[in-house]
Structure formats: structure tokens, C-alpha cells
């Protein structure tokens, strides 16, 4: 009995292809995360988050990415079930065959990373999708500018009663902003909840995005979260260690000349990328 009526190699190629997209995405994510290391109060990081959240091409790739994450997991589970069923009676003596250590535990290392991904989605991605409530912030200068434009309209008598009421509420909200809500890192930024940002910025204000910078700073301030984060990237490193060369094998790329190169690229990628991610909490803990 085969779970899905595709050839085993087809399923493996699918698994590898979804994984390849994830491999390509990871350095992009790393690039954005490394903006956190800049001492600019989150300016670069917020700009990068803004770009990733609003660019239409990125939005299309976001769907592709989520599909790849999901399908990579689903196909991996299907293959693992099939593999388990192929040996109904197990050996009494555990195998003593020497094989690359990481290759044997791909489903487990992948499972751990997937569990972290759920946490990561709750912390960030679902906030963006408006499923989970996050932290918001707004730039006072920009809000003031938008407010004054609307005030001008009011003077000209171009606003209806409803808009006038909203403008009054906004005026009150702006005048009531207490100094403790001002962002400590970046000038002119004010930290708010979602309801506050609605009233404060006005309904049509464009930059009403969750403030991922503040949210990530708060998470990394927790020692337990940083510890889990570093541990997960160690596990991801193990997972990636068997990723690129395994992928090449599945795609049929095996050659005396370039196979050793692939082997090296695989190792370098598996070391550099997770270290790049793990540096961030370490930096925040020990350097900042």
C-alpha cells in the first residue's frame, strides 16, 4: 500500500524541491535579522519588515514559501510513514552500520524545527496576518503630517460628520500620549497597542504595521527564549548538514568533479547560516 500513488523518486524530488526553496529563503531571512545588530534603534529592521510586508512580489513569494513549508512537512511525514511500514518487524540488534549521523535523524531534527516554527508564527507571522495581537508603533512626525493634512480638509469643510468625530478622537489620542510610550531606541517612535494605533494614526494611515523590532527585542530580552532560539538553530544546522548534498543526490547530481564541491557548500551553508541566526540573541545578551 502506497500512501500517495506517485513514484518514490517523484515524491523525493518533490520533498527536495520544497526544501530547496526553503534553503534559498533562509539567507534572505538571515539578512533581515542581521539588521537587528545595527545600533540604529531598529530603523533598518523596520524598513526591511515594511518592505517584506508590503511589496507585491514578496507577497506572492510569501504564499509560495508557506506552501513549501507545509508541503515539505507533509511529504516528509508521508515518506517516513511509508518507510516505517516497509519494515513491519524490526531487528532485535540495532544497526551498527556507520552512516552520516545527521542523515538518520532528519525527521526528528525537522520536527523540532517545525515546532519552533509554530512558536515563531504565533510570535510574528500570525501578528502580521492579524490573527494574534502584537505590538504596534508609529512615527510621530508622519502621524502629525497626516493629521495636519486632514485638519486642513476640516478647515475647508471637506469632511463629513463621521470623519470629523474620528479626527477629534485622533486629536485627543495624540495629545494624551504619555512620555513612557516613547520608544527608547529610536527618535520620534511611539509604542502602542492595536486599538491605540487605530485611533492615534487615523483609519487611513498607511504605516499601521506591527512593530516587529520592539517585539523581537522583547523576546530576546527573555533568557529562556534566547536559549530555545539558539538551541533550535543548532538543530537546524544538523538538519541542513544533510540538506544540500542529499538534495543533489536526489536530483541525480553526482560527479567526480563537482560532488566534493557540493559537499563543501553543504557543510559551509549548514555552519554559516545557523551561526548567523544564533549570533543575534548572543549579541543582544552579551554585547548590547
Amino acid at each position: 500500500m502506497k500512501l500517495i500513488q506517485f513514484a518514490s523518486i517523484t515524491k523525493k524530488i518533490a520533498l527536495a524541491s520544497f526544501g530547496l526553496f526553503l534553503l534559498l529563503f533562509l539567507p534572505v531571512h538571515l539578512g533581515i535579522n542581521l539588521c537587528l545588530l545595527r545600533e540604529d534603534g531598529g530603523e533598518w529592521y523596520r524598513n526591511a519588515s515594511h518592505f517584506m510586508g508590503t511589496n507585491y512580489i514578496v507577497k506572492v513569494f510569501e504564499i509560495v514559501l508557506m506552501a513549501c513549508v507545509l508541503l515539505h512537512i507533509v511529504v516528509a511525514i508521508l515518506l517516513t510513514i511509508e518507510n516505517f511500514m516497509a519494515r513491519p518487524v524490526r531487528y532485535k540488534v540495532r544497526t551498527k552500520t556507520k552512516t552520516p549521523f545527521m542523515s538518520r535523524y532528519m525527521i526528528w531534527t525537522g520536527g523540532i524545527v517545525a515546532c519552533f516554527l509554530v512558536l515563531h508564527f504565533i510570535n510574528f507571522y500570525f501578528v502580521k496576518l492579524d490573527i494574534v495581537e502584537g505590538k504596534y508603533s508609529a512615527n510621530i512626525e508622519q502621524v502629525d503630517k497626516a493629521f495636519q493634512e486632514k485638519a486642513l480638509k476640516l478647515q475647508k469643510g471637506e469632511l463629513n460628520e463621521k470623519d470629523q468625530a474620528a479626527l477629534m478622537a485622533q486629536y485627543q489620542a495624540i495629545s494624551q500620549i504619555s512620555p513612557d510610550k516613547m520608544d527608547k531606541g529610536q527618535k520620534n517612535m511611539v509604542n502602542l497597542t492595536k486599538e491605540e494605533v487605530e485611533i492615534y494614526c487615523g483609519k487611513d494611515f498607511k504605516h499601521k504595521e506591527p512593530d516587529f523590532y520592539t517585539m523581537s527585542q522583547e523576546l530576546f530580552a527573555k533568557k529562556s527564549y534566547s536559549f530555545i532560539y539558539i538551541l533550535v538553530f543548532l538543530v537546524l544546522g544538523f538538519h541542513l548538514y544533510h540538506a544540500i548534498n542529499s538534495l543533489a543526490q536526489t536530483f541525480g547530481l553526482s560527479h567526480k568533479k563537482y560532488s566534493p564541491v557540493i559537499e563543501w557548500v553543504s557543510v559551509i551553508y549548514a555552519v554559516v547560516v545557523p551561526i548567523g541566526f544564533a549570533i543575534i540573541p548572543l549579541w543582544i545578551m552579551f554585547v548590547k
Binding site: M1, K2, A7, S8, K11, K12, L79, E82, N83, M85, A86, R87, T95, T97, K98, T99, P100, S103, R104, M106, H242, N245, S246, Q249, T250
Partner: peptide, 16 residues
């Protein structure tokens, strides 16, 4: 596949 063999996970115990 029909005969019920498992899928390769590139572990290379076979080669060893």
C-alpha cells in the same frame, strides 16, 4: 514501489 520497499533517505547504509 509496488512491492512495498521503502524510500531512500540518502543515508548510505546500503553502500557501507
Amino acid at each position: 514501489d509496488d512491492l512495498g520497499f521503502g524510500n531512500c533517505t540518502n543515508t548510505y547504509a546500503c553502500e557501507a
